[in-house]
Amino acid sequence: METTLREVIKQITFKHLKKFKGQVFGQNLTGVGWVAGTLPKLYEKDGVIELPMADVANGGMVTGAALVGRRPFYIIRYQGYNWLNCIFIVNYACKSKEIWNKPAPMFIRGLSSEGGLGPVSTSSHISIFYKMPGIKIYSPMTKNEYTSTYKKFMKSDDVFYVSEHRKSYENKIEFKNSLKKNLDIILMPISVTRFEAEKAKNYLNKNGYKVGIIHLYELKPFVLKKKWISMIKSSKYGVLMTDNDYVDGIIRTLAHKINEQTNKKVNVLGLKDKSAGYTLKTSNFPPSALEIINKIKKIKAKKRL
């Protein structure tokens, strides 16, 4: 049986604890669900540390653990809690290497899920980290991407924010970019929207469109590869980016960077600019395949006029 991303995260965590004497911090870890099955069943003696219900202090305490070289994993079970947890991470851990020459490498696992929890943001919420210096941000949705992110972390002395999505834990496949010259449009999806973007791309390509895709998971630093730039430049309508963070979050920043380097229009679809309720009708979901398809149809129609 092929392994899932969930298994890979669990194995990486096990190795980090046992081989590298690392630590894993978080709230309500050692109980129901074991962080959606991504955490091996280990306890404080093995380095899995239950933190109190003190999110602001906890971010600082894990920073302390990082300062003394324990390379902690820090699990934030819903990214809505980033607001409280980010304070000392971005203001201390991320600055410590540059100011005091004391790195504080930590691997933050921020979990997101898809709507349904009302005003507590369950989707991605990494924009608040994004603008700060001294942080690296990744959003791996596949096994290879996750493994590569962890390897990078172990070679680095930076703070890593790893934006996960619960929906990806069952994933077994790897995504491939699909690019050629003179496409109509190129999708650049992030996080869980990559699954829907793939569906949209396949549908559109069967229906007379020429749609390419660039899967994004290395978000900061964000590097546009040369090949991507030339493919985007040769496309008819530029780029459509999708994300499960708010639409005025990091995709606008990334869109601007892409626009600067390609001179092409970059459209964005993310969480809507509204507060979410609990019901299907009132929740705030990331763009679906259908929404992506409709958006591309609209872009094309508008261009024709």
Binding site: V56, A57, T63, G64, A65, A66, P72, F88, Y92
Partner: peptide
């Protein structure tokens, strides 16, 4: 360890460093 200017943050960092290093 240097301070970053948010008063009291050093209590959190100190506790975390103490816990993880046992120093």
């Amino acid at each position: 360890f240097g301070h970053e200017g948010l008063m009291g943050s050093n209590a959190c960092m100190g506790v975390g460093a103490c816990f993880s290093s046992a120093k």
